[in-house]
Simulated scan of single mutants.
Amino acid sequence: MDLTHRPRRLRRDGIRSLVSEVDLSASDLIAPVFVDATTDERRPIESMPGHERVPVDEAVTRVEEIRETGVEAVVVFGIPDAKDDQGTRAWADDGVVQRAVRAITAETDAYVITDVCLCEYTDHGHCGLLEDTAAEEPELTVRNDETLDLLGKIATSHAEAGAEMVAPSGMMDGMVGAIREALDADGFTDVPIMSYAAKYESAFYGPFRDAADGAPAFGDRRHYQMDPANAREAMREVALDVEQGADVLMVKPALPYLDVVSAIREEYDHPVAAYNVSGEYAMLHAAAEKGWLDLEAAAYESLLSIKRAGADLILTYFAEDVADRL
C-alpha cells in the first residue's frame, strides 16, 4: 500500500486552521430587523425562535443589540399600520421603515439596508399591482411595468430617510433599472442596489411570512418568482440585473441553491449575497429542540457552506448567534 499522500497530515491542531480554505466572520453577516407599526411592545415570532417584531421606538435598541455581537449591517423590514391595494404606505414619508431608518441612522453606526417590495403593504399580499384585485383566481398576475414606478418611489423614500443600500426583492422585470433611474434622478447616485437577482418561489419562506405579515391573501407568486427547477434561468436574470446597474447580486434561498451561488460567483466579479431564509433557520431550530442536532454547530456549518459556495455576504437569522461564536 502506497501511503505517500496522507491528507490527514494537514488536519492536526496547529496546521488545520492555517490551511482552512474559507473564513467566516461577523462582518460577512447581515441581520434582519422587523419593525412593526401596529404594536408598542416587542412581539415574539413563534415560528422563528429568538426573533421578535419590535415597535418603531425600539428599532434603535434592537439594532444596538445586534451591533454588540459584531454584526455591522442590518436589513430593515416593515409591518405597516395600514394596507391597501397599491401598498401606498410603502413609500409614505411617515411609513414604518422610513421612521425606523431615520432613527437607526441617526443613533447607531450600523450599515442600513432596506427591503424594497410591496408584499407587506398590499392588502392582497402580492408584490405589486394586480390585474384585478377583486378576483380571487390562481392565474392572477402582477402588472409588472406599472409596479416599477412604485418600486422607484419606495427606494427613493428609503434613501431620503437615510438608507445606505436598497434591496429590491419583488422579482419584477426591469426593477433594478427603474430603481437606479429613480435614485439617480433624486440625487442618490451613491446608494447601491443589492438585487434579489435570483429569488425562487420556495417552500422555505413560511416563517418570514408570519414575521412580516406578507403572505398572499390568495394565489401564489409563481408567475414572478423563479421555478426551483431552473438554474440557467438564474444566470439570465443575473445578467439583466448586472446590465441595469445592480451592485450586489443576491440568491434566495441559500442552502437549496448553492449551485446557483457558485455559478454566479464563477461568472461575475460583483459581490454575491445569499439569503439564509426563515425556513432554513426554523428547521434547524426544530431539529435542535428534538435533540437531533447541535444548533450552534449546524448553524455555523450551514453559513460556512454558503460562504464556501461563493457568497461574500450572508443575510441570516443566525447572524447574532454565530457572530458571538466567532
Rank of each mutant, 00 (worst) to 15 (best):
A155I: 07
A92S: 13
I66G: 04
T39S: 15
V166F: 02
C117K: 01
G50F: 01
M171V: 10
L148T: 15
G50Y: 08
A82L: 01
A135G: 08
I45T: 05
M172H: 15
A135T: 10
K153D: 15
M165I: 15
E107A: 11
H124Q: 07
C119R: 11
V54D: 11
R62G: 03
L118F: 07
D145M: 08
A178P: 08
G174V: 10
E136K: 15
G152Y: 06
V60W: 05
E46P: 13
A92V: 03
V60G: 07
V96A: 08
E120M: 03
P55Y: 06
I79S: 03
T38F: 09
S169T: 12
D93H: 09
L151W: 01
I104C: 13
E41P: 00
S47N: 10
L129W: 02
R99P: 00
T122V: 12
I179T: 12
L129D: 01
G125W: 12
I66S: 13
G174H: 05
P49E: 05
V56C: 06
T69Q: 05
V96H: 01
E72M: 04
E64P: 02
T69W: 08
G177D: 02
C119F: 04
F77M: 01
E52G: 01
R43K: 10
D109K: 06
A103G: 08
V74S: 04
D40R: 14
D145L: 05
E164D: 04
S157N: 04
E181C: 02
Q86H: 13
H126E: 03
H124T: 14
D57S: 08
R42C: 10
V56H: 03
E41V: 08
I79P: 00
D81Q: 04
E137W: 06
E146W: 01
E52R: 10
G170Y: 00
E41G: 05
P49V: 14
V63Y: 09
D40H: 14
T38D: 01
D123F: 07
A90E: 10
E72P: 05
R67I: 05
H51I: 03
A106S: 15
Q98M: 14
V60A: 08
E164R: 14
K153S: 12
P80Q: 08
E146I: 02
D84Y: 10
A135P: 09
Q86V: 14
H158E: 09
P44R: 14
D81Y: 13
M48C: 12
R43M: 11
G174L: 05
A59L: 03
G50H: 06
C127I: 05
D40M: 03
P49A: 02
A135I: 06
